[in-house]
């Protein structure tokens, strides 16, 4: 780790993506797609970036992230109904509520890794999903929380109505840019470097003196909070919130798109994955209802043969200049008996 190395605030890949995303409303309909797709992609790009903080950067397998996304979704709606019909309040509550959920889970699992961590996240995910279904009076149960409104962006002087998909798209894009800058800075901060060290060798990091528990907990909490932000945006975009986003199946979607995009080796991989996932859904889905099966098989194939994902494939083809995040941990310890 070269201390004096200047880390850019963002990479060319990020900038190009942002600009590309900004132009989307101009051509999306001409290619036969639709504006709302862009909204979905960006929301899940935020979700996947947040998720990758735990999977790719910290090396922790979470299969229950849907819970945090879902908490954010419900929190946004509930805040709107019970607190204030304000976009900022709603999103803030979504972030806080999901962060609290993350804190609760982090308390139980941060001292673990590997399979115990994975199974615990599954268990917690199932518990939250269960509560979402059963707490009918709060969440609307299986019928969902309906009539959530797209609140306007009130910036004092000007107000933007988000009921138009294009306007919503630009708002989500702005949040996306903000979140990606934030996470980029975080990953390249001393905090991020320590998390990377913990991923490589937790025992050694503890020896050196880091409070590993705290870092792992922090990573989960931040990731949960930002996943909740995505969830809040999602329920606003959909104008409803349903329990199924908390299901194991749904949690699996973000795992798959993150790895497929290249989250294990690339900071921007999850974004690529989100794009790939939704394009697959709409394009392959137009041909067959079994698109998810193919995407899943693609995911399995990548885990076996190319865990670096799409971004990893491109990084291999291009130069090695911008390999900024950690490599996949794949050294087996020699069998010492």
């Amino acid at each position: 780790m070269a201390p004096g190395r200047l880390v850019p605030t963002f990479t060319p890949a990020m900038l190009v993506s942002w600009l590309l995303f900004a132009t989307v409303p101009m051509w999306i309909e001409r290619v036969g797609l639709y504006q709302y797709l862009g909204v979905e992609i960006l929301i899940f790009a935020i979700y996947a970036l947040a998720y990758n903080l735990v999977l790719g950067h910290a090396g922790l397998p979470s299969f229950g992230h849907g819970a945090f996304f879902g908490i954010g979704a419900y929190a946004f709606g509930l805040a709107q109904f019970n607190l204030a019909a304000s976009l900022w309040v709603g999103l803030a509550v979504a972030v806080l509520a999901a962060g609290l959920g993350g804190t609760l889970v982090a308390l139980f699992i941060s001292h673990r890794r590997g399979i115990y961590y994975a199974l615990m996240t599954i268990a917690f995910g199932q518990v939250f999903w269960f509560i979402a279904i059963k707490a009918h009076s709060i969440t609307g149960g299986e019928d969902g929380l309906l009539k959530i409104e797209r609140l306007p962006v009130a910036l004092g002087i000007v107000t933007f109505d988000l009921r138009d998909n294009t306007a919503l798209y630009y708002f989500v894009l702005a949040v996306f840019v903000g979140v990606s800058l934030l996470l980029w800075r975080l990953v390249h901060s001393p905090f991020g470097r320590i998390v990377k060290a913990i991923k490589q060798n937790e025992t050694r990091a503890r020896f050196v003196g880091y409070d590993v528990w705290r870092y792992k907990a922090a990573v989960l909490i931040i990731s949960a909070a930002l996943s909740g932000l995505a969830g809040g945006l999602f329920s606003m975009a959909q104008t409803s919130a349903f329990p199924d986003v908390m299901s194991l199946h749904y949690s699996g979607y973000v795992v798959m798109m993150t790895l497929v995009g290249g989250g294990l080796v690339s900071f921007w991989g999850p974004v690529v994955g989100a794009v790939a996932f939704f394009l697959a859904r709409d394009m392959i889905g137009a041909l067959t209802t079994g698109w998810m099966l193919w995407f899943g098989l693609f995911f399995v194939a990548l885990v076996l043969f190319k865990p670096e994902g799409i971004a990893g494939i491109f990084a291999g083809l291009a130069t090695r200049k911008h390999k900024t995040t950690s490599a996949p941990v794949s050294n087996p310890q020699p069998q010492e008996r």
Binding site: P61, H249, G252, V300, P332
Partner: peptide
């Protein structure tokens, strides 16, 4: 995935579980 970082085994079997569930749905 045998002998590699256990994370890969988890991701692999998780992926297969999802694929099988999709197969069942189909």
């Amino acid at each position: 995935t045998y002998g590699r970082d256990p994370l890969y085994g988890l991701l692999l079997t998780f992926g297969v579980a999802m694929v099988l569930e999709e197969l069942i749905r189909m």
